[in-house]
Design a protein around this nucleic acid. Structure first.
Lengths: 229, 229
DNA sequence: CCCAATATTGACAAATCTCTCATTTAATGT
DNA sequence: ACATTAAATGAGAGATTTGTCAATATTGGG
């Protein structure tokens, strides 16, 4: 275990088994279906991270994954590599949670994406905890706000928002989302917290009060329906 | 080392030496001036926490404090107790940073307090990093927003703000401040980030655009002057 | 200057952790 | 079935950590 390089990817990245994850090739040779173990380890890593934070040990992970110690090192060269993989995994899962069906109006799109992220946090406490833990890592802010930049720029261009994708705006919105997730995790969120958060986010972007409330209601309903499906 | 009890204080709290910290009594017996060591350890703990996060070890701390291993256990029963003390220390330091000279207008007071907190973060990277690290701990949200509640409630009562100290508002403001601090720590903050953040905060509370800008400018200037003194 | 109270030290046992590796177990194609 | 290839195992070496404790050093009062 060594200091994890702040930015960038691991210099090692010695994937031993699997090697696919999202490779188009249908798992070159059929019998590599033992990606299962890798996912077991990653899931266990997420749970361990949610619970213990960065102090997580390999022992925690393998215990949680119900796998032997040595197996871990078949999949990750290092404890640090697991961190890297987990961080990337979460970044992608945020983007995935935010991805919404094509909606033209940037305000609606923003509302829907934000609603989906918050609802995901509400429904998956581990996920929420992991996000909060990774928030205190360098570079995390960028990941969190990536899903917004585009919408905000477009919304400004269309005159839908009165403010663009500048730093302060991104900070305000991602901060709001992060704090809402925190509140959810800590269990003292009102039932309407997600809706209020979305509404607040819209208003911060310059959407008028009544319309913000309306859009938030609509977005939450859509996100809920979509999640139920 | 064991799981730290989520809420509440440590059940142990075996302070061996000192026992005062802020006791009114003038350090009962004179020669207990060896509070110095305790502060050394806490300062070292803060630096270690800033750098290593929750993975911090007692070894890190004593090395940083330039003190022997055994000494640590004269002041803290546990590694966990150090955490508790650090968390409390930081909570108080936020309140201290936010405390501003008596200003009547709640908007001005909010602006000044927020400006001071952000400037403190700008000027003291360790402090900023520690805050971010503690953000991912249960209960941290409460600490961060405590300095706001009063101002917000009063601002609403006086009709100065159009929104009160409800959860969503607190989340929005503390989130903005936290994200601004993060940006500062990560080194990609514009020079005017503090001012923009304060302005955004004011606007989120319902202060009109131009006045928000004006108050932010004023608050930053005042906070800067105060800090320089 | 000496004494008693207090603080500091560093060696150490016990626990824990990381990572390696020889060996065993399981899966796959033929 | 059988041979071949990949995956899993767990013992264990070496490093690090935690917390204890007897010995040592320091302090301030008398």
């Amino acid at each position: 275990m060594r200091d994890l390089s702040i930015l960038g990817l691991s210099s090692k990245m010695g994937i031993v088994a699997g090697m696919s994850e999202t490779t188009g090739a249908p798992l070159s040779r059929g019998h590599r279906k033992r990606e299962k173990t890798r996912r077991q380890l990653i899931d266990a890593g997420l749970r361990a991270l949610a619970e213990k934070g960065e102090g997580l040990t390999v022992s925690d992970v393998v215990a949680e994954a119900d796998v032997s110690n040595g197996t871990f090192y078949n999949y990750f060269v290092d404890r640090d590599e697991l961190f890297l993989v987990l961080a990337e995994h979460v970044a992608m899962s945020i983007a995935a949670a935010a991805a919404s069906a094509p909606v033209l109006d940037p305000a609606r799109r923003f509302a829907l994406a934000t609603a989906r992220v918050i609802l995901r946090a509400v429904g998956d406490e581990t996920w929420a905890r992991v996000i909060l833990r990774l928030m205190s890592r360098p570079g995390a802010g960028v990941q969190l706000s990536r899903y917004l930049r585009e919408d905000l720029a477009e919304g400004l261009a269309q005159g839908r928002f009165d403010t663009g994708a500048d730093d302060a705006t991104l900070d305000q919105v991602t901060g709001l989302v992060a704090m809402t997730i925190r509140r959810v995790v800590e269990g003292d969120a009102q039932p309407d917290a997600p809706e209020r958060a979305v509404e607040r986010g819209l208003r911060a972007l310059g959407v008028a009060s009544e319309e913000a409330a309306e859009l938030a209601r609509e977005a939450l309903a859509a996100a809920r329906e979509n999640a139920a499906r």
